[in-house]
């Protein structure tokens, strides 16, 4: 009980700390919004055509991609860098000397990812709709899909971030170790480059990682039904999105459970 109460108290504290750390806010919170604005403006004269009368603007195409990128950045990049830094600068050692349960600490981190992730998604939707004229779905079914892909994707992403936080050897190298992983994933998973235009081997490789499935789920929500034909299997495959993200969620949970320590013992 007190573990949950303290976890809730940590959520507020972590969120406040996040918004006071300027580089985290820029590179994990505002970055997808900035990229959406750049892509939508730079390619404003272009459109993606499926057939006669079936075309969407670049802003339409990049909105689901940037929502997916936001989930990855707010979870994986944010937590992996943040926790690695806290491990290195003594924050975790100090917490390890208090009666705070590690579970409360994780509730705080994951809660912070959810709050900032929801704000980020809301900002992306508002900017896409008001600044770039993207028409948002109006049927409840699409928003239900959006809700579960967002929740499952964000949870998975946060757990993978916790797991990856033990990869950098110190806080200074954390950004250099984590950002390339996240960047490569975004290029092969259909975030910056149109997924259907990638070579098959790259599509298959991307299918091993969760971002491809988050992006596919988001496309299912925001692109017209006819665009399902451009997916590798010719369908949105939402069932497989759930399965792939579920597997990564369990993997992330096991990884974080096995690798997390308040301090590097006897290092």
């Amino acid at each position: 009980m007190s573990t949950a109460i303290l976890g809730a108290a940590r959520v507020g504290y972590e969120t406040k700390g996040y918004f006071r750390t300027w580089d985290q806010v820029f590179f994990t919170f505002l970055f997808p919004v900035l990229m959406l604005a750049i892509f939508a403006s730079a390619f404003s004269s272009q459109s993606i055509e499926l057939g006669p009368g079936q075309s969407i603007t670049m802003a339409d195409y990049y909105l689901p991609a940037m929502l997916a990128a936001g989930i990855l950045l707010s979870g994986v990049q944010n937590l992996a860098v943040d926790i690695a830094t806290e491990k290195s600068d003594g924050t975790l050692k100090r917490l390890g000397g208090t009666p705070l349960a590690p579970t409360s600490y994780f509730i705080g981190k994951i809660g912070q990812v959810f709050i900032t992730g929801v704000l980020q998604a809301a900002l992306l939707l508002v900017v896409a709709s008001l600044a770039f004229g993207v028409t948002l779905p109006s049927d409840p079914g699409s928003w239900m899909t959006f809700a579960w892909v967002f929740v499952l994707g964000t949870t998975t992403s946060a757990l993978i971030g916790i797991g990856l936080s033990s990869l950098p050897r110190n806080g200074k190298s954390a950004t250099a170790v984590i950002v390339p992983i996240v960047l490569v994933l975004q290029f092969i998973s259909g975030v910056y480059l149109q997924f259907s235009a990638l070579p098959e081997w790259m599509q298959n490789l991307a299918s091993l990682f969760p971002l491809k499935w988050i992006a596919q789920g988001m496309r299912a929500v925001f692109l017209p039904e006819e665009f399902a034909a451009m997916e590798p299997s010719g369908a949105w495959d939402l069932g497989w999105v759930a399965v792939a993200l579920g597997i990564w969620l369990v993997a992330g949970l096991v990884l974080s459970r096995l690798t997390f320590r308040w301090i590097r013992r006897d290092a």
């Binding site: 504290y13 406040k16 700390g17 006071r20 750390t21 830094t85 600068d89 003594g90 924050t91 050692k93 100090r94 000397g97």
Partner: peptide, 12 residues
Amino acid sequence: IVLQSTGESGAF
């Protein structure tokens, strides 16, 4: 526990 000095970011 008062540890030897640490380098926390100090956002609070």
